[in-house]
Amino acid sequence: MEPSYDREKVAAIHRHLHAHLPPEPALRVKAIESLLVEKGLVDPAALDAWIEAYTEEIGPKRGAMVVARSWVDAGFRARLLDDAAAAVAEMGFAGQASGHLKAVENTPARHNLVVCTLCSCYPFAILGMAPPWYKAAEYRARAVRDPRGVLAEFGVTLGPDVAVDVWDSTAELRYMVIPERPAGTEGLDEAALAALVTRNAMIGTDDLKGGA
């Protein structure tokens, strides 16, 4: 039997309707969001503010300002290394997700690299959202197994005399790297220095020497 006109029509309507349907994960997110708001578990204004803040990627600028301050103010640097959460709060960046922050400093003899081997723990209140590669299984595995290989991939080549420390961020303790101040920046003020600090430098995959 040939398909009837109606069956064709129904199929066409079906295709049309499905074209309007958001993708499955978007539909589920919408469902969850509407339920959470109804139950009072999520404040829609807070969620909107979160999305606006993190899609604008304001985060890394805060971290860069922290690093620049540590380059020009030895007292601040000491406090940052001793208690990063308190030092960051000094700069007005107190608050959620920076409470369990640990700063580790690069030196001529030691390079630091941060990973979250479990999932994607990251001090996003200070550094903004983690880059996609930070969340990749490949990075989570290789950063521990072959940190020098990962660093080389990002253009950071270390001499054999430079040790590499790999820090595993968790939900309770998140790390940020204080990179070395680039040579030839003696005349720059704090704001100009902050502009030199990249997100990757604060993860450890950039040494601010022009490679990455």
Partner: peptide, 14 residues
């Protein structure tokens, strides 16, 4: 200092 390897699986996602 070398540039990041554009074919490297992680750096190319940067």
């Amino acid at each position: 200092m070398s540039a990041p390897d554009p074919l490297a699986p992680l750096a190319r996602r940067d």
